[in-house]
């Protein structure tokens, strides 16, 4: 992420120290993760100690301190989806892209997360890729779905 964009985001909040969370959220949203240099820059610009910035960045689950893939894959493991066999789907996804939940593929194509209920219980079991719900699927459908995301 280039420095100018970070400056723009910080200026949007008038560089106030109490806007750390908002600034970090905006950067997280655009960049998908928070590199160390970005945290240092935010700390310098806002006059908030680096330890405080790290405290916040590690506390909230929204923030990722590790690089994230281009596509976010969420597999629902909530009660309804679990009943309808989401465990098998998660297994299939893991087999296909070769990572466990919370990890990212080395080519930065996918990040895998599991969620306990993604909100569409009637459509389960489902996976959500980049915000797009793929519902009522079987393990056999997974390959065709993931193929669309390069």
């Amino acid at each position: 992420m280039d420095n100018r964009r970070i400056d723009e985001i910080i200026n949007k909040y008038d560089g106030k120290p109490n806007s750390v969370i908002m600034v970090l959220m905006d950067i997280q949203h655009e960049n998908k993760w928070l590199p160390r240099e970005v945290l240092e820059k935010v700390s310098n610009k806002l006059g908030v100690p680096l330890s405080e910035v790290l405290h916040i960045a590690t506390f909230y689950k929204t923030f990722s301190l590790k690089p994230q893939g281009r596509h976010e894959v969420h597999v629902c493991t909530g009660t309804s989806c679990h009943q309808r066999g989401s465990a098998k789907i998660l297994e299939k996804v893991q087999d296909l892209i070769g990572i466990k939940p919370g990890e990212t593929t080395p080519d930065l194509r996918f990040s895998l997360e599991k969620g306990s209920c993604l909100g569409c219980c009637t459509l389960g079991p489902e996976i959500v890729v980049d915000g797009m719900h793929h519902s009522n699927i079987t393990p056999d459908d997974v390959e065709a779905i993931l193929k669309n995301y390069k």
Partner: peptide, 27 residues
Amino acid sequence: CAEVKKKNAIAFVDQGPKREINFIPEI
């Protein structure tokens, strides 16, 4: 470190059962 020395060289990181203290290497 934060209140008396004002150096902030050590911080709490992570949350819940994983919470721990960590020195910030840069500082």
